[in-house]
Design a protein around this nucleic acid. Structure first.
Lengths: 334, 334
DNA sequence: GTCGGGTATGTCAACGTTGTCCTATCGTTT
DNA sequence: AAACGATAGGACAACGTTGACATACCCGAC
């Protein structure tokens, strides 16, 4: 900047005024300075500005895994909101590891992210987050809440959505409905399980723990677990997948085993090609783009000083019938 | 930091020494200072450090769209490499818009990203990138090269892979193979088209421009375009999708129209559930994770001073036979 | 004629850190 | 006893920017 000042024969401060477009600068000087900036290829050093002003125009996004379509769509939505307000986005995947997640949050925070959007990994220490919050770092939680923390939260309607899904299967005559959910330590998994149970008991259907699997759907090692459920003496006539990774795993396994007739199938969270499979896969669709957008807008409002009471938003889910969920069960009148 | 210094009765510089673990500090002093740091919840201000040292331990990633599974997997790989070396990742989607891409690159660069990984949007001005490079910002290009720029590049074997795919269809008796690729201004699209044509001419199969569609596969408005090809007087017996978005669009359209018998189908780039569809979708698989990892490693080496000649890496593609590409054509002996 | 307010520009300190250079105290060697 | 290296810590400037404040001019109003 001092180079520019020297080249155009004005003071540093005047250049600063030109760069920031504030204060009085004569048209003539403005032109001279701009020419010098252009010629020297000057670009403002953001560190210095940040150091001086204490704001970075950067937000951080911490989620489980960007490679998961749910989160990648959410990421994209956050990005778009951020960019539209000239914010930059730092992002990282926690890989569902509380320690890694903490490291990420700390480095985001020390690099002065103005705010964070977090899908808390299971096992995250609320006290740690509270300390960050107290240090003045705004936060919005998505997908999962953190108990005891007063911060904005955007969640899907997990319990209600799952209940609707299970009720849909029940309405098609199913009484033996298997449920495959993520590990019980994951908030969304237990909420959805609760919803599934709500629907069962509302319909007076007996709940059977042998039909319930709560496990991380990561690896293929789950084949045996799936088989155990499918091969019960009194096997399920319908399958409820608690998230899209379970859906993929289950569908792959069902195809590999060539099971006929296909059990009814319903998945929580939509996925690409769900409509192209035969039958199309009936799902309870979340809206990750809306979740990301809302969270980002909420966060940016907080960052610019909004101090209204914290908001807890529940996003609607939507039942999309595509065929797999409408396969009639043994007690169906259909 | 001065608070910590005051609290522990030493000078600022000593605290700095403790924080950075350099220079001589007595065990006793170390303990005192660390206690003070702990108690005051001090965290180093990264701006000031960056301002002083001129390095940020941050890299930027610019690609077309994080929500695209190809790029989201690549992103995740870059993230993992970055994090393992204590780098942070700034990321943004260019949305295939050169102006937006430029804005992103400029802000990454002015925020002192030590290096950038870029999947250049079509229409990106090479001169602009060259200027950034000259300004000392390391760059690695992924997925697409930028003509005339001397920088490391990691590409998939587009032309060769596409040729192998087309040859596979030809080997199964197909002579009328439709090709659906991204807009002709996209590097990968034209490379793959060239590979497709290579295979045709190598096999002495007549090339027919009526079978070739080069268009952005974004919206559903492509239905008419697809129909035009499917309903030719001499229709294709096989379809080659030039990228995974075209694959999805085409498969969806084929299902919606209920076309029987199904034409043979082969897609460039693998996608989730490709193996679950019936028949399984034969693809030329890229390796986005390897691409991201390699690019990140290359970049981080550059950032830490490696100045070996620029590298141009071509990653192998892999033909995965799942059934759809092995549907026999009219001239097949199978 | 002088006062006030708008316009245009400059000076200086400060943001929080770290590199350079300096001083002081040791214990050990010459 | 002087000289030395190793250890321990301090003072100060500098990184590039911007806010607070000061200065100087011009024009119209009293």
């Amino acid at each position: 900047m001092s180079d520019v000042a020297a080249a155009s024969g004005v003071s540093l401060k005047t250049v600063s005024r030109v760069v920031n477009g504030v204060g009085y600068v004569s048209a003539e000087t403005l032109e001279t300075v701009q020419a010098a900036i252009e010629q020297l290829g000057f670009r403002r050093n953001e560190f210095a500005r940040q150091l001086r002003q204490g704001t970075t125009a950067t937000i951080g996004l911490v989620l489980e895994d960007v490679a998961d379509p749910f989160y990648s769509v959410l990421t994209r939505a956050v990005e778009d909101v951020a960019l539209s307000q000239d914010y930059l986005l730092l992002s990282a995947s926690s890989a569902e590891d509380a320690a890694r997640s903490r490291r990420i949050i700390e480095s985001f925070s020390s690099r002065g992210a103005d705010g964070l959007i977090i899908a808390p990994a299971r096992g995250t220490d609320p006290a740690f987050l509270q300390a960050e919050l107290d240090a003045g770092c705004s936060m919005v939680f998505v997908d999962r809440p953190v108990p005891g923390i007063r911060a904005d939260t955007v969640l899907a309607e997990n319990r209600g959505g799952a209940a609707r899904g299970a009720a849909h299967l029940i309405a098609h005559g199913h009484r033996r409905i298997a449920f495959f959910g993520d590990a019980a330590s994951v908030y969304t998994a237990t909420e959805r399980l609760a919803g599934y149970r709500d629907a069962l008991s509302a319909a007076g259907v007996e709940s059977d723990d042998e039909l319930v699997v709560m496990a991380v759907p990561h690896d293929e090692a789950n084949g045996a677990v799936i088989d155990a459920v499918l091969d019960l003496d009194d096997p399920p006539t319908a399958i409820f997948a608690g998230n899209n990774r379970w859906s993929v795993l289950l569908l792959r396994h069902l195809k590999a085993r060539g099971i006929r007739p296909l059990p009814a199938f319903l998945g929580f969270d939509d996925f690409e090609l769900g409509d192209v499979l035969d039958p199309g896969i009936t799902v309870i669709a979340q809206n990750p783009a809306a979740m990301g957008q809302l969270a980002a807008e909420l966060l940016l409002r907080r960052v610019s000083g909004d101090d209204r009471p914290t908001q807890h938003i529940q996003l609607e889910t939507r039942l999309i019938e595509r065929g797999s969920g409408e396969i009639a069960g043994p007690f169906s009148a259909c």
